[in-house]
Nucleic acid binder design. Structure first.
Lengths: 208, 208
DNA sequence: CGATGTTTGTAACAGACGGTTCCCATTCTG
DNA sequence: CAGAATGGGAACCGTCTGTTACAAACATCG
């Protein structure tokens, strides 16, 4: 239990979390390993093995309780509390992120939104985040609130600059929604999302 | 060569593609396996092994030519031509997707954008896509253009409905940017993007 | 109450895969 | 020319995954 999880296991547990969250919203109370398998394309035996490694969460002949399994996985991933993140960029993408319920559902709080455009500063975007702050205050705010996760939703041209400011302020995990490649110190993780590349990957496997 | 690639290999090749595309934009002409490793966190030896399996693309003591390696990987992934996709939803997220250069960079063309809101229909969003079409015409347009990739950028509540229409029209690959779990036939791939879950995953590994 | 079907938990095994470590050939730099 | 940098290639090992099989627990139905 004290051992760290493998990347593979943690990834799969995250997928389960995603399915369970949605299943709960749809009012489902119980779910079987086979159902999770249908949604994730992960082998049902693998799912049971993953879960049984941490305890006996399911009931034979019945399945898993959605609620309790959600709690157990959150315990395993140690992501039960609230997490604060900073969002840089209040353009279309930033607005889409800020107004999505997807972060709040998982206990993630958008603690601050920044933009360098004076016309955006002070506006309220999304429902769960405060008003847009001036990028000049980024360093102070991020440092004061001890934020360690930053989301980059600015054009590629200013992505590196935003990254540098975040890193300077103590951020250790960056989600990059620009096309830019970001240079960061070794102790900072960058997750770059690139739908186009994922699409090419999917297309390859679609060929008969 | 006729053999299908492993999922792992194809994933890594896609990552290389992403790095190379960006490196080219930054004016880089040569790149070493070590540099690619720095950006992708993939073992440099692994990278060389992946590439050398398809031919001798690099020059010893020098590295790889960015341009030619780009072409080689595109050849391997068979994604050289133009691909048409359909985008459903012209809200903030849909607009962000349509106006991003990220798809065009990889030869992916947003052939049609749909929205059910009459106020949106006819507007021009993004620079590379035509004007917004009424969702009522989705089936006809998608079928006529032989589109096999659809992107869902609508609220969770209407995601399944949009999915059903796409599937009915022959779409085989769906990128889902809503929180909804989508039910699809077995021959349709769904790629659900969930930044919040990815974030929890990253947070787990960040703990010292 | 008993029979039957469903679902989890667990073990065992084979195959694939990734990381590592070598060593060598080639090229560039000074 | 000497040395550093870099890709090509082989071999090894441990880990992970998918699969199969089966027993135990539970539900359902008659």
């Amino acid at each position: 239990m004290a051992d760290r999880l493998t990347v593979g296991v943690a990834s799969r547990l995250s997928r389960y979390l995603q399915v369970l969250t949605q299943a709960k919203k749809m009012g489902k109370e119980r779910i079987s390993s086979q159902e999770i398998s249908d949604y994730t394309n992960i082998n049902a035996t693998q799912i049971r093995r993953d879960l049984s490694g941490f305890g006996k969460f399911g009931k034979r002949g019945v399945g898993y309780s959605v609620d309790s399994l959600l709690g157990e996985i959150r315990k395993i991933l140690r992501t039960q509390g609230q997490h604060n993140i900073a969002l840089v960029g209040a353009g279309r993408l930033g607005q889409a992120i800020a107004s999505s319920p997807i972060f709040a559902e998982h206990g993630i709080n958008i603690a601050a939104v920044f933009d360098r455009d004076p016309d955006m500063v002070g506006r309220q975007i999304g429902s769960n985040s405060g008003s847009v702050l001036d990028s000049k205050s980024l360093k102070d705010v991020v440092r004061d609130k001890n934020i360690i996760v930053g989301v980059i939703a600015v054009p590629a041209a200013s992505a590196q600059e935003a990254t540098d400011e975040l890193v300077d302020s103590g951020v250790k995990i960056i989600f990059n929604y620009s096309e830019a490649l970001l240079d960061v110190p070794h102790d900072v993780q960058v997750h770059t999302s690139n739908p186009a590349v994922e699409l090419l990957h999917a297309l390859y496997f679609h060929l008969a």
